[in-house]
Amino acid sequence: MEKWVAYAFLSMLFAGFTSVIAKMGLAGISGDLALTIRTLFVSLFVLGFAATVIPASDYSLLNRTNILWLGLSALTTTLSWIFYYKALKLGDVATVALIDKGSAVVAILLAWLLLKEVITLRILIGGALIVGGLLVMVKKP
């Protein structure tokens, strides 16, 4: 297995835990407060990670374009997290988490439009299955 695939599966695993643990942490408080506390912890953990693994020389590689795109990514992450926590406070973890993972379809389309990535039949089928799963999960019985 290629290293990036292993990393992607680990990301999936931890993201799954994140949703359930976050829902448990929402007990008795607002989603907004929960998000703020979680984000403070994430900031501390990421800063600690950066301090231990990023060589100081890497910072000189940053340019305005990197900072612009990473800043925009931070903005969209912030908006995603705000709405995710609002949904998580009100809804079931399984449904909210699945809808959130529908972002993969958005990513596929944006990667095709903006990055000129190739959409293969395998990717089309996978995306269609995700959309199908979303429709099944959100349909009221």
Rank of each mutant, 00 (worst) to 15 (best):
A56N: 03
T77M: 07
V42C: 10
F45S: 10
S60C: 02
S43W: 12
L47I: 11
L47G: 07
F45V: 06
V42Q: 12
A51Y: 11
L75T: 07
T78E: 03
S80G: 15
T78D: 05
V53C: 10
L79C: 08
V46W: 15
W81T: 15
L44F: 12
L61D: 02
L68G: 00
L47N: 06
A51V: 04
S43I: 15
L79Q: 03
G71L: 07
N66Q: 04
F41V: 14
A50T: 05
T65D: 15
N66M: 07
T52I: 04
N63R: 06
L70Y: 09
S73M: 08
I67Q: 10
L75N: 03
L75G: 06
Y59E: 00
F49T: 05
A51L: 14
L70M: 15
N63E: 07
T77V: 08
D58M: 02
T65W: 03
L68M: 10
V53K: 00
S60L: 06
A56H: 06
G71N: 04
L47E: 12
S73V: 02
L75V: 14
L79G: 09
G71K: 05
D58V: 00
I82L: 15
G48I: 14
L44M: 13
V53S: 12
T77Y: 05
A56K: 14
L47Q: 02
V42A: 13
S60I: 04
A51G: 13
L62H: 02
T78Q: 02
L79S: 09
T76R: 14
F41T: 07
T77W: 08
P55C: 09
I54R: 06
G48T: 14
T52R: 12
N63C: 02
A50Q: 01
L79D: 06
G71A: 12
L68V: 12
N66Y: 06
L68N: 02
T52S: 14
T77K: 00
L47T: 11
L75E: 09
W69Q: 07
L75W: 05
S60P: 00
A56Y: 06
W69Y: 14
S73W: 02
N63F: 06
W69C: 11
L75F: 09
L70H: 12
V42I: 15
S80N: 13
S73N: 07
F45A: 11
A56G: 04
T77G: 07
V53H: 07
I54V: 13
A50C: 10
I54M: 04
T52Q: 07
F49V: 10
I82R: 09
A56E: 01
T52E: 01
T78L: 05
L62K: 03
N63D: 13
I67S: 12
S60Q: 04
L62W: 04
S73L: 07
F49D: 03
D58E: 12
W69V: 10
T52K: 13
A56D: 05
R64G: 13
A50F: 03
F45E: 03
L79F: 00
V42W: 11
S60K: 03
S73A: 09
I54Y: 11
A50G: 11
S60G: 08
A74W: 04
F45L: 12
L44W: 05
N63P: 02
R64E: 08
F41H: 04
S80W: 08
P55V: 08
I67W: 11
D58I: 00
I67V: 15
I82Y: 13
L47W: 09
L44P: 09
Y59S: 00
A51C: 09
